[in-house]
Amino acid sequence: MNFSEKLYKIGEASSLLGVHPNTIRRWEREGKIKIVRIGGGHRRIPASEITRLMRKEAQISPVSSETDYEKGLRAFLDFVFTHCKNDHELVKRAIFVRDGYRCRICGSSEDLALKEKDPGLGIIEGNLMTICRKCSEFKEVSEKKEILEEKIEEQEKITRKKILNDLSPSGIAQRVAFGEILSAALVLNKFSLKELVVQSKSPEPLVRTFCERMEALGYLQKTESGYEIKIKVVE
């Protein structure tokens, strides 16, 4: 892998390829896609893999019942995408032909344009799609919403080490005790003070102090029956 190439999250890759994120995970298990691991064990898909799968998706497969016109069309598109890929204007025109001059999302033949799934991948057949203005605007809003949700999800993740540091334990012994209570809280997720005392096998005053500090930090939310973890904790 080229270490300077762009890496995509599974959600981003699934959006570009038009598949469900679980499909990406299944492809990984089946060895159909190369995924790299970064810090924290997070999975990322290299841009080269996205491009490879896009090219594969864009290929037009021959069928036994195709007409002479369809055979000629397939041959034309294969030639353009293979031998004229640097002629961007020709590639763009070929995309319209490939898509039958219809929006790939709704099938409309009005107010059409070409949209790059990811501007960073450039003018290649798998990265371009014919789309009408209405669907393009809707897709942009959906993509922005998905990006925002992913950013919020990343911001909500926090390490155990940071939590324990933020709890400001008075010494090593209290830090260890807070760590045990934190582990119990993560197992329960929603709990009362008594339930956390039992699960962590810790003194109630210490558990109460833990909960009060966690709530003050915004890591716990008070509920009618007790508390609920508000964050996603990573190692």
Rank of each mutant, 00 (worst) to 15 (best):
R208V: 00
K157T: 12
L128K: 07
E224F: 08
E89P: 02
L7S: 13
K230A: 10
K134Y: 04
E30N: 03
G226N: 00
I158S: 02
I172D: 14
V19P: 11
Q199C: 01
E5V: 13
K145H: 11
K6R: 14
L121P: 06
L148P: 05
K71Y: 09
V97D: 11
F76Y: 15
V233T: 02
A184I: 00
I181R: 00
K157Q: 08
F138A: 11
V97A: 15
V63Y: 09
K85M: 09
G72A: 06
G122Y: 03
S48M: 03
L217E: 04
R55Y: 10
I38Y: 02
P205E: 07
I38D: 03
Y69N: 07
Y101R: 11
E215A: 14
S168H: 15
S64G: 07
G41W: 07
E28S: 04
P46I: 09
M1I: 11
L17C: 04
V198G: 00
Y101M: 13
E149W: 05
G179W: 00
I158M: 01
F96G: 00
I35E: 02
Q59K: 15
P203T: 02
K139H: 07
C135R: 08
E146W: 06
E110M: 13
L196M: 05
K134D: 05
G120S: 05
L17Y: 04
I124H: 02
C135H: 03
V19I: 14
W27Y: 07
R37G: 07
R43W: 02
R44M: 13
L167R: 03
L128M: 08
I181P: 02
K232T: 11
S202M: 12
D87V: 05
A75L: 12
L186Q: 00
I163A: 05
F96R: 09
G171M: 01
M214Q: 02
R29E: 13
K232A: 02
K222T: 10
E110F: 14
K139F: 06
V197W: 02
I152F: 05
Y219L: 09
Y101I: 14
Q199S: 09
I10V: 15
M129E: 13
S108V: 05
